[in-house]
């Protein structure tokens, strides 16, 4: 009854081992060729060639972007949106809760991108436990700034240091902010935090030549961030120390044609970003689906962050 060695199985009788072997053969060759191809280029060239391909797609007529990886599709759509006037864009974020695995990579990427100090977090991932043991389920809810259309944090600022820009992103003017923290109390999503001027390494011991002492270790933490397109070195008590801080959809990256850090690092492609005013865009398509919800909608804040459930 056993199949003789060397016999060719018919298409319908392809067993699992042979299927994997053939797949590895074909796929492996393709990957190897790609790797060889990439290795023959220097990294700079590889990146610029990739960027050129993305740029080509921005102008290509009739390309079906749905065949691309969502990250590439979003980058093409992002660059397409940047061709429009700022007031014609409407940036939204879509978070697919069914895909989020709670790895917190987005939180970490955001901290690295914006060089956030202790006590400041723009995008924590809330872990929700639903039900009672043993009938429990777990859900992960990333919570960036909602970039509300009616932001409660804006009108409460006594000096107009926070405002909605023409693209709909709620921004901070760190140099104007007096640090009264009224906006923090007014945000229904606790999406604003206070910069107390702390560093992660400040408790490190100092022993020159023996360990990476705190005065050296915090060099990275003292490096400037580039939020809102400006350089903010962390020196003395200068801003943003003493200010309220918040997620800004990585505006400095967007303007350079890059997706927000949390989007590019999401391992499950659960966080999506784009221009909702582009009817062809991925996010426009998703926010029209019936399984969309927004946090605390009853407050009328009209968040620009949508969750797929």
């Amino acid at each position: 009854m056993t199949e003789p060695k060397g016999s060719q199985p018919s298409g319908g009788d392809l067993n699992r081992r042979d299927f994997l072997r053939s797949l590895a053969g074909v796929g492996g060759a393709a990957v190897a060729l790609q790797v060889l191809d990439q290795l023959s280029l220097d990294p700079e060239q590889a990146i610029s060639s990739y960027e050129a391909q993305i740029q080509e797609l921005v102008y290509a007529e009739g390309t079906n972007l749905e065949t691309l990886d969502v990250l590439e599709r979003m980058r093409v759509e992002l660059r397409r949106a940047l061709q429009k006037k700022p007031e014609e864009r409407r940036w939204v974020m879509v978070i697919d809760l069914r895909k989020c695995v709670g790895c917190h990579a987005c939180t970490v990427a955001c901290i690295a991108e914006n060089k956030l100090p202790p006590g400041v977090v723009y995008r924590p991932v809330i872990e929700e436990e639903i039900g009672t043991y043993p009938n429990v389920a777990r859900r992960f809810v990333p919570r960036p700034c909602m970039q509300c259309e009616n932001p409660p944090c804006v009108p409460v600022c006594p000096v107009g240091a926070t405002y909605t820009n023409e693209e709909g992103i709620v921004e901070m003017n760190y140099s104007r902010c007096i640090g009264c923290r009224y906006c923090i109390t007014a945000c229904p999503y606790s999406a604003r935090t206070s910069d107390f001027g702390l560093t992660y390494t400040q408790a490190n011991a100092n022993a020159e030549g023996l360990i990476l002492s705190s005065d050296i270790a915090d060099n990275y933490e003292r490096a400037s961030n580039f939020e809102y397109g400006r350089e903010y070195p962390r020196e003395g008590r200068n801003s943003p120390i003493g200010n309220a801080r918040k997620c800004h959809f990585c505006q400095h990256r967007i303007l350079e044609g890059q997706l927000p850090a949390c989007v590019t690092t999401c391992i499950g492609r659960a966080t999506l970003f784009g221009d909702a005013n582009d009817p062809e865009s991925l996010v426009a398509e998703l926010i029209a689906s019936p399984n969309v919800m927004r946090l605390r909608e009853e407050l009328g804040t009209e968040p620009r962050v949508y969750y797929l459930t």
């Binding site: 009108p155 409460v156 000096v159 007096i178 640090g179 923290r181 801003s239 003493g242 200010n243």
Partner: peptide, 19 residues
């Protein structure tokens, strides 16, 4: 205030929409 040296901002740049 996080930046008490900027208290004068409330006099110079007031937003009277804020309590």
């Amino acid at each position: 205030l996080g930046h008490f040296e900027r208290f004068w901002h409330v006099i110079v740049y007031p937003d009277f929409g804020s309590m």
